[in-house]
Design a binder for these strands. Structure first.
Length: 610
RNA sequence: GGGCCCGUGGUGUAGCGGCCCAACAUGCCAGCCUGUCACGCUGGAGAUCGCCGGUUCGAAUCCGGUCGGGCCCGCCA
């Protein structure tokens, strides 16, 4: 890292360098002025080196050093020396040595920063961090995370190139996609009245590359979606996008699994990978056992159906739910029987927030008595049967949700995650990867009165379910919620890491007639198909190979690998939850002349009538 | 579109109707100090308590609105 300004970085100096005359350059991390003697901790992204300025040895440098302040950029030249016995600093990699300064130059001065750069643990208001993002990024935690992210992307590229993948860039100015999220729109100056859309993902383009014969493609691709933000969602984010030809589901999963393991071991060698090979479970199993299609399996707390043991209990909620074809599920939260009423009320509120109509609890006291709002319905045998069904032990709290459908299981699944967090379950160091597949092809869209792709409209169907791509009316353009199509399972697979959806993909439909049938079910008439997907449908008339792929969220992956739950922490310049960039002050009004050229007028936000 | 939380010297917090022209820590400025490493010691400056309006004899404190940030639901794969 030698340059005209420096011979070593601030992380390089070791005992082996002692005696050498060197120059260092960096930011003043801290200054300790003892009068005749000044210590500067000089920092760059590689580390910190102590610089000593002794007035007797270097009076001119001492004068400069007296005026130096935190975050000034300086260049110090001198002799690298072994520290005096007893003054070594074990906390620094460079702590056995120090630079005895002969010459000190200020390369640039700095105002007092708006928040401490030199205290890694300092809590700083998010808005302030984002406004001065360049200073936030100067802090050690952000440096570490972005460096890890860089290693992550590097490792991904290495593995893919080694496996014969071709890295191809796809355009950002493309055509709006009718499915999925809201598109960002870019008006066209050359084609007045028309607009480009920014890609939600390179989905169609990568499939076209398969038609072109690039049988192994990948890209670290920016994706843009104009939807509301969350901690794990930004309007622009990055995916590892890949697609392969002449593959089955097993082929894609096998490659991705090896790739993920290799990359994880390379980037975070100290973190254990829970399972190799990754466990695989069907969507149905994930929902039934964990109430989630992205279960965190680092801990148990599995859900159990109580349909058999709750039937005919005399408790109206159970009986009516089960008679109506609904579900009753429960799980045992270990050691939570002593939870006070207030805590149980909180859990009930959480369950409601997660979409349950209510929550039933049974606390198994150590003495064997059961405390529960439905105690009077729990005649002896029934209570024991429920306890047995969920595998509860004395001291456990059994949580039960009844409801019409999958939403009850999902609500309970979220309670499971809440309880696990509260109980401190799940080793935070472990990387627990998991495959979930056999997702339903479609979900019923009541508003649009059509079937909607659960994931991707091009996802293929399990061969044995192909005949289910039909409506009960016999006319694919006349769908209804009871259609066989609702039971069809997709060749769709998600990869899950510690309870987060890391990525998802599918084997695509490459046979045109099947694709058209699927599109009809999703409410796209042949005419609409031409308009919306004409390009790719035409391409599929020219020998599309069987193909499939996957996309992994790089931001989420980097966040999980750095113990973060918010992807902003692994993005250099993220936006706020309201989609603004506080540093650049974007979005902003646009020069009227430019708008005019584009044939645009921007309407200001509607104000309530005055 | 909706719910909840936060906004007080540069920073992080305390104060939550009068004890407050606001406290503590840190940072900042000045002086002293030759082995510090979160250096130490002494002194000092620094806040119309996000903004607007209201209630009140009196508002950082209560109420309404607004702006900004965060978490969540809807939305989103």
């Amino acid at each position: 890292m030698e340059t005209a300004y420096r011979d070593l970085t601030c992380g390089d100096a070791r005992l082996s360098h002692v005696g050498r005359e060197v120059a260092l350059a960096g930011w003043v991390h801290r200054r300790r002025d003892l009068g005749q003697l000044i210590f500067l901790d000089l920092r760059d992204r590689y580390g910190i080196t102590q610089v000593v300025i002794d007035r007797h040895d270097a009076p001119e440098a001492h004068t400069v050093g007296a005026d130096v302040r935190t975050e000034f950029v300086v260049r110090a030249r001198g002799v690298l020396a072994k520290r005096l016995a007893g003054t070594e600093n074990a906390k620094l990699a460079t702590g056995d040595v120090e630079l005895r300064v002969q010459d000190l130059r200020v390369l640039s001065t700095a105002k007092t920063p708006p928040f401490p750069i030199n205290e890694p643990d300092a809590e700083v208001d998010d808005a302030l961090r984002l406004k001065y993002r360049y200073l936030d990024l100067r802090r050690e935690p952000m440096q570490k995370r972005l460096l890890l992210r860089s290693r992550l992307v590097h490792a991904i590229r290495e593995v893919h190139h080694a496996a014969g993948f071709v890295e191809i860039e796809t355009p950002l100015l493309i055509k709006a996609t009718p499915e999925g999220a809201r598109d960002f729109i870019v008006p066209s100056r050359l084609q007045p009245g028309s607009a480009y859309a920014l890609p939600q993902s390179p989905q169609q383009l990568k499939q076209l590359l398969m038609v072109s014969g690039f049988d192994r493609y990948f890209q670290i691709a920016r994706c843009l979606r104009d939807e509301d933000l969350r901690g794990d969602r930004q309007p622009e984010f990055t995916q590892l996008d890949l697609e392969m030809s002449f593959v089955t589901e097993a082929d894609v999963m096998a490659f991705v699994e090896r790739m993920v393991i290799e990359v994880s071991r390379s980037v975070t060698p100290e973190r254990p990978i829970a399972n190799d090979p990754f466990p695989r479970m069907t969507y149905r199993e994930a929902i039934d056992r964990y109430g989630s299609d992205k279960p965190d399996i680092r801990y148990g707390l599995e859900l159990h159906s109580l349909a058999d043991v709750a039937a005919g209990s005399g408790f109206r909620v159970f009986d009516e739910t089960l008679d109506g074809g609904g579900v009753v599920y429960g799980f045992a939260a270990p050691g939570m029987a002593g939870a006070p009423r207030s805590r149980l009320d909180e859990l009930t509120e959480d369950a409601k927030r997660h979409g349950a109509r209510g929550l039933i609890w049974m606390a198994l006291e150590e003495g064997g008595t059961i405390r529960s709002p439905i105690a009077k319905f729990l005649v002896e045998g029934r209570a024991a049967a429920i306890v047995a069904a969920v595998g509860a032990k004395p001291g456990d709290l059994v949580l039960i949700v009844a409801g019409d459908d999958i939403h009850a299981q999902e609500a309970l699944g979220r309670l499971r995650v809440d309880c696990a967090a509260r109980l401190g379950l799940g080793d935070p160091d472990v990387l627990s990867y998991l495959w979930v597949n056999r997702f339903p092809m479609y979900q019923w869209d009541a508003d649009g009165h059509r079937w909607d792709a659960t994931h991707n409209p091009f996802s293929g169907v399990l061969p044995e379910d192909e005949e289910l791509l039909a409506t009960s009316s016999g006319d694919p353009s006349d769908p209804s919620p009871g259609d066989p199509a609702g039971r069809a399972r997709a060749l769709q697979y998600d990869i899950v890491l510690n309870g987060w959806e890391l990525g998802g993909g599918s084997i695509r439909i490459h046979r045109r007639e099947l694709l058209e049938r699927s599109f009809l079910l999703m409410g796209h008439s042949e005419k609409a198909q031409r308009e919306k997907f004409g390009g790719i449908l035409e391409a599929f008339e020219y020998g599309p190979p069987p193909h499939g792929g996957i996309a992994l969220g790089i931001d989420r992956w980097a966040a999980l690998l750095t113990y973060q739950t918010n992807i902003r922490e692994v993005m250099a310049f993220p936006k706020t939850q309201s989609g603004t960039d506080l540093m650049l002050e974007a979005p902003s009004p646009v020069d009227p002349a430019l708008l005019d050229e584009l044939g645009l007028a921007l309407k200001p936000r509607k104000k309530p009538d005055a």
